[in-house]
């Protein structure tokens, strides 16, 4: 594996391998000195054309825990310079001898385009409406922690699927792992040709939640009402939001996921995020581990060199051993 561009470019074996080795990296975080030398001497550039504090920080922490050097390339974007030459940027990075580029861009496809001009590994940290593969990996890892094997489990994704790179990656990853996925959204917020996707769709959230094993809420942006995709956010919340009443009907064993940042009062009622079954913090924590696993697989020296997993990592977080 040279790049991580999208989930559908991974084989099922690749996907399972990443999830299999992730606990080794989760364990590193528990150590007093949360750092292993796996990527010492390598440089990872974080090329973020679009603001995303949490994804950038997560990748940066992941790279640093593997002892890689990181380089933040902040690219100010506006509609004026959205015509920047991608090739110029890629060639500049190439000339600096960078080993991996983590890229976030508002336009779908930019990570693919960069691979044409780069020898370095490219990791997609979110491109337009298209893909956000590490988000899907951390979601799957989190769901496996809560539900075990995902084969046959029923995962309900709710919200703006059409404009969501998270949804596209999650649908591919979850179905690859054998989960059954239901997308709940107003028809205007489903992608075209949704009938060709390996999912069920529904416009009735209450009915879909009855046999849900997990609920995934997507961020609803207020600009969608200006495009006449929904009449207003109040109606959206009523029909498609996880209201307090809906949350109360859910079993406490049904985890609630969200990619963040949450719009309290829109896709999720104000007090619902404080419920025990909301696993957003687990998602953030697992995000670092799964990104370490990805960086390690792309840049590391092979699985024989994995950090050793301690039998019970949570039991004694202060015991750290060099790997």
């Amino acid at each position: 594996m040279k790049h991580l561009l999208s989930i559908d470019e991974l084989s099922e074996a690749d996907l399972r391998e990443i999830l299999r080795i992730t606990p080794s990296f989760a364990e590193v975080a528990q150590r007093r000195i949360a750092k292993v030398p796996a990527l010492r001497g390598q440089t990872v550039a974080l090329l973020f054309y679009e603001d995303s504090t949490r994804t950038r920080l997560s990748f940066e922490v992941a790279a640093k825990r593997l002892s890689a050097d990181t380089l933040n390339v902040s690219v100010k974007t506006s509609s004026v310079n959205k015509g920047e030459s991608l090739r110029d940027t890629a060639e500049t990075i190439e000339a600096m001898g960078i080993d991996a580029v983590v890229v976030r861009h508002r336009s779908s496809g930019v990570p693919w385009q960069l691979t044409k001009w780069l020898d370095a590994s490219v990791i997609n940290a979110g491109d337009g409406w298209h893909q956000h593969p590490t988000q899907a990996l951390l979601d799957c890892f989190t769901l496996q922690q809560k539900l075990g094997d995902l084969a046959g489990s029923h995962i309900v994704l709710v919200g703006d699927i059409k404009h969501s790179r998270v949804a596209r990656s999650d649908v591919q990853a979850l179905t690859m792992l054998g989960a059954e996925v239901t997308l709940v959204a107003p028809p205007t917020l489903l992608p075209p040709a949704i009938g060709t996707w390996p999912v069920r769709t529904s416009h009735d959230l209450d009915a879909s939640l009855v046999d849900a094993d997990a609920v995934y809420l997507l961020r609803m942006q207020s600009e969608r009402q200006h495009e006449a995709l929904v009449p207003d956010l109040r109606e959206y919340s009523t029909l498609y939001g996880l209201t307090a009443a809906r949350a109360a009907k859910l079993s406490p064993h049904v985890p609630i996921l969200h990619p963040g940042p949450m719009n309290r009062g829109v896709e999720i009622a104000a007090d619902v995020p404080d419920l025990e079954q909301v696993v957003v913090v687990d998602q953030v924590r697992n995000g670092v581990a799964v990104r370490m696993a990805v960086l390690f697989l792309l840049l590391g020296s092979g699985v024989n060199d994995l950090p050793k997993v301690h039998a019970q990592p949570q039991a004694d977080a202060n015991v750290g051993t060099a790997v």
Partner: peptide, 15 residues
């Protein structure tokens, strides 16, 4: 073009 491919590629399509 709006269709199955635009749907997966995450690009806005023209029907």
């Amino acid at each position: 073009h709006e269709g199955e491919w635009s749907s997966w590629l995450g690009l806005p399509g023209a029907p």
